[in-house]
């Protein structure tokens, strides 16, 4: 049985201007030790998918439908109290903005110890302290012991992100959700952090959901990929299928428009137009107005198709 199985998840926001269907019928699953990538452009619903799993959706938003089966329980049915015990323990999340995960007025050491002591009641302060130093070493933070006494602002962006990852790993979670963990970092530091996350997920046998807009990053790290567009998954399958044999026109376009190091061509392939607002979605396929293959058939939303284990939503894929 999969460690996490999300079925037909719908998370909607009931705003004054209408219902924003941020996540509208997503289904995916992840096994122990597996890495799943969720890609898509800004506003596609990636973060809200992650927040939904953790039960972090606030009003005017609400999970309106679906199941989130994690390790034998449906998280949607749990109370806030029960969820709090799981968050930061069995499931932890690295948020898009590292600033939000670190309290600026408390030392790194104190914040980390608090995270252990909250979930592990029997642990002594001294043991917690040593565990923190250990994990900071594991994530490759230079001068780890000394850094326990540092405040967040005394660290560089890459160092802060290492601390955030260390905190997420403290209680050896079964599932780690990382939302754009390296977007704010330089490529050389990004490569270090990605390498580290891959190594740690192998060592700890934890599952990882990597949320990013960068399909190249996803291809380097993930076993499976879900491509989101305007609140819905449009294609979902193994990394090999999605990257090297994409079937959905949007996935194809995303890969085609990447600048390539080994490409002599001057102009880049471009997808015309922009993703529609979730309050003004077109009738039929949401990608219709940007798609070179669209015709009358696309005026109805395509049904789910399964092709050799890959899921795709497009009329023209047969």
């Amino acid at each position: 049985m999969a460690l996490l199985e999300v079925k037909n998840l719908k998370t909607h926001f009931f705003t004054r201007n209408g219902v924003v269907k941020s996540v509208d019928g997503s289904s995916f699953s992840i096994e122990k030790g597996e890495i799943l990538g969720i890609v898509g452009e800004s506003g596609a619903g990636k973060s809200i998918t992650g927040f939904s799993i953790l039960g972090l959706i606030d009003s005017p938003g609400r999970i309106v439908e679906g199941e989130i089966n994690f390790d034998g329980k449906d998280l949607i049915k749990l109370s806030e109290n029960e969820l709090q015990k799981i968050r930061g323990d069995e499931i932890s999340m690295i948020f898009q903005d590292p600033q939000t995960s670190l309290n600026p007025v408390i030392t790194i050491g104190e914040q980390m110890m608090e995270a252990i002591l909250y979930h592990k009641k029997g642990v002594s302060k001294k043991a917690a302290y040593e565990a923190c130093v250990e994990i900071l070493k594991t994530v490759g933070l230079p001068a780890a012991r000394k850094r326990m006494k540092s405040y967040p602002h005394q660290l560089s962006g890459g160092m802060k992100q290492r601390v955030v990852i260390a905190m997420a790993l403290l209680n050896n979670p079964k599932l780690l959700i990382a939302d754009e963990p390296t977007t704010a970092l330089d490529v050389t530091i990004q490569a270090q952090i990605l390498y580290l996350m891959k190594k740690l997920s192998q060592e700890f046998h934890s599952a990882l959901i990597l949320i990013t807009h960068d399909i190249a990053v996803v291809s380097q790290l993930c076993d499976k990929i879900a491509v989101m567009y305007a609140g819905r998954i449009v294609e979902y399958g193994s990394k090999e299928d999605i990257i090297f044999n994409p079937l959905h026109p949007y996935t194809k376009g995303l890969i085609e428009c990447l600048p390539k190091l080994n490409d002599e061509k001057k102009r880049l392939y471009q997808i015309p137009g922009i993703m529609p607002s979730l309050l003004g979605l077109p009738q039929g396929c949401y990608f219709k107005n940007r798609c070179e293959f669209s015709d009358d058939e696309c005026d109805t939303y395509p049904l789910q198709q399964e092709i050799n284990g890959r899921i795709v939503f497009c009329h023209k894929v047969k």
Binding site: V187, T188, Q190, A191, L194, Y195, K198, D214, I215, A216, V217, S219, Q220, L221, I243, I255, L258, K260, L261, N262
Partner: peptide, 13 residues
Amino acid sequence: LFSTVPDIHTPLA
């Protein structure tokens, strides 16, 4: 820099 640019055709550094 060249070896760390994410690229679909090269493995992670």
